[in-house]
Every structure is written in structure tokens, then in C-alpha cells.
């Protein structure tokens, strides 16, 4: 018997009424009297379910409705239509009980107190969430081990680097061991090492506590590393909801072969491969790349040609980066064949 979904979202919609602000003092007075309202459909009849323990990536271009969805899921915003049931609660109706069972990280904005040492923030949060001392100690130990918080626990948040701050924010969001974790761009602005730390930590938490994670991101490596399932939203509509692998399989159009020739003598011969409108890019003086459409060219045939013409020292076949696929989806490429 399958479990009931932990999060269930049905026909979720959010409209904002905004108005154009006029400039200047006179404009401000006019604003008070007469406003030209415009309705913006930020989220448009979105439906999905998430099972306990899943890690789901939620992507879309800026302004697509990701953050608005997260804000409704966390109880900050009240939907204008549809329903949310999350961990047995209706978030906006039972906000105070509900938020005890979720952790939230907004990458752009810290949840910690700016001026006080990190450890003091944690102690305050322990009180706010009624975390027993023993649980607190146990979790802090884990967080220290994976996130290496010890080095800056006594530093005020405002003095932390972005990467350090993000680690602290993650730990803070998980102090009360919530079954659900919402992350809005958790790796934004971080360097490769910090990103890797965060991803390892999320994996660890997911495995250890079966924490359900929904994360929005612009970095598709986050998704590839963490999520089997991906949801794509644009203009408030859910365009795709399914396995990442399926998306790739259906929409993958090009592949690339990268190869290193033996020496500069071989490099000089490279032009012989330039036929059938094929383009060869030089990566450096011995490394070359050929991008090809996998529907038109067979990989085996291409490899055979390359190996026949030049002496190759190393060779790598890669799929089109997931970024390229997603870019094409945003640009309006039909998803019919996938969402079916």
C-alpha cells in the first residue's frame, strides 16, 4: 500500500494585485487616491504531490512563480485558489503549529540574527522551537561534523562569508528536525566547495532523517546531484513534473564528443573531419569538440570516422548539458511528448 503523500497541492493559484506607482510627491498623493490596478497570475493551477523522503527540484526562470509557490507552501502567503495539505496541515490556516514541522532557508536572506554570534542564534531558536537539550546537542554534533560550523560558531552572522552563513542557515532550519525542508536557492552565490558541502549535507540529512526536501535553484547541478524528480514552472504553470532522467531522455537533442589528439602533427590533420557540415571547435591546441544531433548522426559512426582519421589519445562522449535542455523549455519548446 503506498503511503499518502506528505505534501499534496491541488489547483494552487495565486494572483497579485499590483498597481503602478507614480513618481514624486504629487505622484505619491495621487497613489493614495487613485490606483491603476493590474492583476498578475503568479501561480496558475499548479498540482503536484510529494512523498515522504523525496527530494524534488523546482526550477523555472526568474519570476516564474517558484518563490510564490514556496511562500504558500510555508504558510507565509494565502493562496487565491486551490488547496495545500502539507504534513497534515493547511499551511496558512494553521500557520503556527505547521511551521514547527518545517524548515525553511531563503538563500537570499538569512533567518539568523544579524548582530549576535551564531551559537546564540541557535540557542534562541532552540527555545523558540522547544527543542530538548539532548536532541539539540545530538544535532549540533552532526551539523558540526558535516558543515564544520565549529570554526565560526562564535562569530556574529554579519561577519560570516556567504558560504558560512548559508551553512549556518541550513543548520538553523534543521535544529528542530522538521520532516519537511523548503530551500529557496540554497546555493546561490556560493563557490564550488561550499556548494558541494551543502549538497553533501542535504544528502546526509535526507538519508538519516528521511527529511523531505523541496528546493528551487538556478544551478542544475544541484538537481542532478540531489533530485531524482524535477518540476519546471514558467509563467505560473507547471510545465513538467517527472523524473530528471526521463526529461533528459526525451529532450536530449545533441551530444558532444571531446577528444585529445596525440600530437601537433595529428592536430594539423584535423580538418579532414570537417565534412557533412560538421563543425569542429578547438578547446586547446590538442583538444577538440564536435557537437552533433543524435537524431541525425549515430555516435558509433562518428567515433569510427574520428578514429580512422586521427590518432586519438583520449576521448569523452557527453550528453547535452541539462542547462541547454531547460533553456529550450523556457524558450517555449513543446513538452507535449514528455508530459504525456
Amino acid at each position: 500500500m503506498p503511503d499518502a503523500p506528505l505534501i499534496s497541492v491541488r489547483e494552487l493559484s495565486k494572483q497579485f494585485r499590483t498597481f503602478k506607482r507614480r513618481e514624486g510627491v504629487w505622484g505619491a498623493i495621487q497613489n493614495l487616491v487613485k490606483r491603476d490596478y493590474r492583476t498578475v497570475q503568479a501561480v496558475d493551477r499548479v498540482t503536484f504531490e510529494i512523498q515522504r523522503g523525496d527530494m524534488v527540484g523546482y526550477i523555472g526562470p526568474n519570476g516564474a512563480g517558484k518563490s510564490t509557490t514556496i511562500k504558500m507552501l510555508t504558510g507565509i502567503l494565502v493562496p487565491t485558489g486551490g488547496e495545500i495539505h502539507s504534513n497534515g496541515y493547511v499551511p496558512w490556516k494553521q500557520r503556527r503549529q505547521y511551521v514547527k514541522t518545517i524548515g525553511v532557508v531563503f538563500g537570499q536572506r538569512t533567518q539568523l540574527w544579524w548582530d549576535i554570534a551564531v551559537i546564540e542564534s541557535f540557542k534562541l531558536l532552540r527555545k523558540i522551537y522547544d527543542v530538548p537539550q539532548r536532541d539539540y546537542d545530538e544535532r549540533m554534533e552532526l551539523f558540526n561534523a558535516v558543515l564544520k560550523l565549529n570554526d565560526y560558531l562564535h562569530t556574529p552572522v554579519r561577519k560570516l562569508s556567504l558560504g558560512e552563513r548559508m551553512r549556518c542557515d541550513l543548520a538553523a532550519a534543521l535544529l528542530h528536525n522538521p520532516p519537511i525542508l523548503f530551500l529557496d536557492e540554497p546555493t546561490i552565490g556560493l563557490d564550488v566547495v561550499a556548494k558541494d558541502h551543502i549538497r553533501q549535507f542535504l544528502k546526509e540529512i535526507n538519508q538519516r532523517y528521511r527529511t523531505t526536501v523541496l528546493l528551487t535553484t538556478h544551478d542544475l547541478d544541484d538537481i542532478e546531484e540531489l533530485c531524482k524528480r524535477i518540476m519546471i514552472i514558467d509563467h505560473g504553470r507547471l510545465l513538467y513534473d517527472g523524473p530528471l532522467a526521463l526529461l533528459k531522455q526525451k529532450l536530449l537533442r545533441t551530444k558532444q564528443v571531446k577528444f585529445v589528439v596525440k600530437d601537433s602533427e595529428q592536430a594539423a590533420r584535423i580538418a579532414v573531419l570537417e565534412k557533412d557540415g560538421r563543425k569542429i571547435e578547438a578547446v586547446d591546441h590538442l583538444t577538440y569538440r564536435i557537437v552533433f544531433d543524435r537524431a541525425e548522426v549515430s555516435t558509433a559512426e562518428l567515433l569510427r570516422q574520428i578514429l580512422a582519421e586521427v590518432e586519438v589519445r583520449d576521448l569523452l562522449i557527453e550528453d547535452e548539458p541539462i542547462e541547454e535542455i531547460v533553456k529550450r523549455i523556457y524558450a517555449g519548446e513543446a513538452l507535449k511528448e514528455v508530459s504525456a
Partner: peptide, 13 residues
């Protein structure tokens, strides 16, 4: 500045 979001995420009035 949007700090109120943080307030709404905590289980205290």
C-alpha cells in the same frame, strides 16, 4: 526589506 517573512516562519506570535 521583507524581514516579516522570517517572523511568519516561527511558531511564536
Amino acid at each position: 526589506e521583507g524581514k516579516f517573512d522570517r517572523v511568519l516562519l516561527r511558531p511564536v506570535a
